[in-house]
Design a protein around this nucleic acid. Structure first.
Length: 108
DNA sequence: CTGATGACTGAAA
DNA sequence: CTTTCAGCCATCA
């Protein structure tokens, strides 16, 4: 098992500010996950206690099975979804870009 | 070992 | 706008 990876991903997701969102790709890069798929995998297993609703796909949509609750929760934080799609240009977690650029601590 | 399967993504048609 | 397709990589049968 990749305990390391799981903890890193969880740490990153916990870091996404209220009213902001990040893509699976963003989380993967920051957490140094080998692939965005793994991020989804982690959330699927240990994501229940995390703000997983702030993680969307690269195009601003969310995975079908959870879309309903996800959009609802986001709206409670002030994130507006147009036709199930969130405007990343507006709500994307800015630090995600920085974190990727620089070299964050190996452990949080 | 081989093959199928995802809370994915970017490019191409 | 849509669908397809090829990469992706830990997991599981």
């Amino acid at each position: 098992m990749d305990e390391e990876l799981h903890e890193m991903v969880r740490a990153v997701v916990r870091r996404i500010p209220r009213g902001r969102v990040a893509t699976y790709g963003d989380v993967a890069d920051i957490a140094r996950a080998p692939s965005p798929r793994l991020v989804g995998m982690v959330l699927n297993q240990d994501g229940l206690d995390l703000p997983w609703h702030r993680v969307l796909r690269a195009n601003g949509t969310c995975a079908p099975h959870i879309a309903d609750e996800q959009l609802q929760r986001l709206r409670e934080e002030g994130v507006v979804a147009d036709d199930g799609k969130v405007d990343l240009r507006k709500y994307r977690w800015e630090d995600a870009v920085k974190q990727k650029a620089e070299e964050p601590p190996a452990l949080w």
